[in-house]
Structure formats: C-alpha cells, structure tokens
Design a protein around this nucleic acid. Structure first.
Lengths: 148, 148
DNA sequence: CTATACCTTATGGTATATCATGGGTTTTTA
DNA sequence: TAAAAACCCATGATATACCATAAGGTATAG
C-alpha cells in the first residue's frame, strides 16, 4: 500500500483508493473510521479488526472496570461505519475532517492492517518526522522486530 | 458505534439512531435502559445482553459475593424495557432523564454491544477526560491490547 | 517503437430513499 | 374524565445510490 492523494468534494466525499478497496472488498464493502488518539489524522480499518480489539479489551479488563468502560467509549463512541458505493467513495463526517484539518485533499497512508488519512501539509511534516525518528532508532528497531 | 446527537421533543420522545436500530431490529423492536452505576448517564442494550450480564454476575460470586445482591438490585431493579415505534422513537422516563440531566438533547454513545445516553455538556467533558486519560496510559494500553 | 483502443479509477452531478422531527389523532389507564 | 402514552401521517433535511464524464495507464496492433 502506498500513499495516495485524493480529492474531497464539497459534500465530504472521497474515493477510497482502489488498492485499499480491493483488500477490503474480499470481506465486505465497508470500513470503520475514527479519530486517531495521538495524531491529527483519521484512522481506518475493517470492522473485523475493531471487533478483535474490543474482544481483547473485554478479556484483558473486568466487565465493571473503569478501564473497560473508558476504552469502549473511546473506541466505539468515536468509530463509525462507512460503506462505499459502486464508485468506491465514502462520506466522511465533519468531526473526522475537522480533527484531521482536511478540507479539499485527503492523503491515504497505508499502515499494514489499517490506514490513516491526513491533511497533505500535516502528512508531509509527519513523514519527515517518522523518517528522522526511524533513522535514529534503527539499531533498536531491527533487534525488536526480528520476527517479521 | 458512533456518537449521535438527537432531540428530545416536548413529549419526551427521542429517535433511537438508525444504526443502533438496525442492529437491534434483527432480533426485536425493543431495548432495555437503566441508570448507569458509575456515570451520570443512561445505559441501553438488548435484553439478551442483560441476561448474559446476569449470568456473569452469578458466575463471579466468589469475587462479588458481597456486592452481588447490590448489583442485581441496582441493575435489574432499575432496568426497563422500551419499545420503539415505527418511526424508531422511544419515550424515556423522568427517572432516567433526571439521572442523566437530559432535557432537550440526548447524546447516544456507542459502546460496542451496548450504548450510553448523555447530556451533551456532560458527554463533552467525559469524552475529553477519557481521551486525556487514554493518552496518558497509552504505553500500558498498547502492551495489554496489542493494537490501538 | 509509436499510436490507438480499451480499461480502470477518480470526480462531478443528480435523483431517490432514508431519517429525524413535528404535529395530530386515537387508545389506554389512572 | 383527564392525562398520558401509543399510533399515524407529513415534511424538510440529508445521506445514499446511481449515472456520466474525464483522466491516467496499459496492452495490443500497426
């Protein structure tokens, strides 16, 4: 998956890049999007992945625990299903667009089993940051990820 | 899933968001609501889930023996069935609305298998609190849940 | 090796269906 | 009998589905 720039029209519609669609389509015709917790961008994935995460939370925390309560609110309160039509577009909400400061162009960035949607300028900065960081931590990284 | 703001009309009626309805409708046309034990909000789910919760409480007797009675009383004594009509609306009771301080607008917050109903201002505060908290505990979280 | 035809994908526009919400009417119940 | 709740219909807003066009890329034929 590479980085793709697509236009956002006046209604908030964006074409999900065809490569992304192809992967999702094997399972369904919808994705889930939510505001990234740590970055000014939108994150997307399949519902399956989100369900898996929810199950993990349920297993790792107690039913009545504050942690479980907070996490489920955080994840499911924010996440929204987006079905894409025959032309492969989704309609992003105001909340999501605002969080990522996206107006007329959205940058799709593949992240393995999920992806991110950025404002072009912000992504440019982020990419530079990531590259610098990766270079700095290279020795540690290679040791850690051995199994991949 | 998702957070949705709906109006409460003069008669106390609220539209249950269509996405929520779609999931419930496969089974029936009613949900169960009760006052949250931990937060100033209303909680809602299907009757099936409440039954499951009852079983879980029973199974956890070893750990909750003291509080089991209290829990069952609090939840089941409070829970009430709400059928939604052809337009998808329910009529919440005074008791529930008062507990959540809801007057003219109700915020539906998805929690996976259940949902919460909040007063807009309270939810805004709660959401900010949760997100800040999650950000602070991020290292711990990611280790536990292996994803984000 | 180049040009043309074809296919895929992105994007703009439009019509249709859905949903939230308001109001009115009937039925229940206290 | 009065108040409240369930039911029904109407409407405006909005999202969704669909069609048409444009642009880019690839394969094939000349």
């Amino acid at each position: 998956m590479d980085t793709i720039f697509n236009k956002v029209d006046a209604k908030g519609r964006v074409s999900l890049p065809s490569d992304y669609r192809a992967i999702v389509k094997e399972l369904s015709t919808e994705i889930v999007c939510y505001r990234s917790l740590t970055a000014p961008c939108i994150e997307g994935c399949t519902e399956e992945l989100l369900d898996k995460l929810a199950t993990e939370i349920e297993n790792a925390t107690d039913f009545f625990s504050e942690t479980q309560d907070n996490l489920t609110n955080l994840i499911f309160g924010d996440a929204k299903r987006f079905t894409f039509d025959s032309t492969g577009r989704i309609m992003l909400t105001e909340k999501l667009l605002k969080h990522a400061s996206i107006t007329d162009t959205a940058v799709f960035v593949g992240k393995g089993r999920k992806f991110q949607i950025w404002n072009p300028e912000n992504w440019e900065k982020e990419e530079a940051r990531i590259r610098a960081e990766a270079l700095k931590n290279r020795p540690t990284l290679t040791r850690k990820t051995e199994g991949e």
